[in-house]
């Protein structure tokens, strides 16, 4: 079963609790635009990795709108997001999220928000929908967050 850590380590390789508390569970993902002619996403030879926050407090996922535009992600919907400034209409983009450490590729919908401009260190927020099929263990005592992607048996046909 593929396993990975979503916490932080100090220079000696030990879990570092202060950064986990400040930043939150973070994994590296590839954001891949949907392919034009095939269903399986093209993983580029030298893909750029983004930091993604595993945001268990959110149902929906978000992406930095400037990143979405630079990657040419297709807009597939519109969503109204309510914040301190009242409700605002935001584009919803589609992309494939590749989690190399877990060997997972999953298409998802992402509300486009200004994460970087707002001082957010993550370019992607992964909401609860992305935890489908993943086991997540948050060990606040040791400062470790473990993600596992079990291979589930196929449903009976």
């Amino acid at each position: 079963m593929p396993l990975t850590e979503a916490g932080f380590k100090d220079s000696d390789g030990h879990p570092y609790i202060p950064t986990l508390l400040q930043v939150g569970p973070t994994i590296q993902v590839m954001v891949i635009p949907p392919p034009v002619t095939q269903v399986q996403p093209d993983v580029p030879q030298n893909p750029s990795l983004c930091h993604a926050l595993i945001d268990t407090g959110a149902a929906e996922s978000c992406i930095d709108v400037d990143l979405a535009i630079s990657l040419g992600l297709p807009q597939i919907d519109v969503i109204t997001i309510s914040g301190a400034g009242g409700p605002q209409s935001h584009p919803v983009y589609m992309c494939a999220i590749v989690m190399p450490a877990l060997g997972l590729t999953q298409y998802g919908r992402f509300a486009g928000v200004r994460l970087k401009a707002g001082g957010q260190s993550h370019q992607v927020l992964l909401g609860r929908t992305f935890l489908n099929g993943i086991i997540m263990i948050y060990d606040g005592i040791r400062g470790q967050v473990t993600l596992a992607a079990p291979v589930l048996p196929a449903p009976p046909s």
């Binding site: 945001d55 959110a58 997001i81 309510s82 994460l115 957010q120």
Partner: peptide, 15 residues
Amino acid sequence: STGMPLPASVAYRPV
């Protein structure tokens, strides 16, 4: 839902 609250991780950033 066609609407959502701004995720707390974005809405509340202490400065």
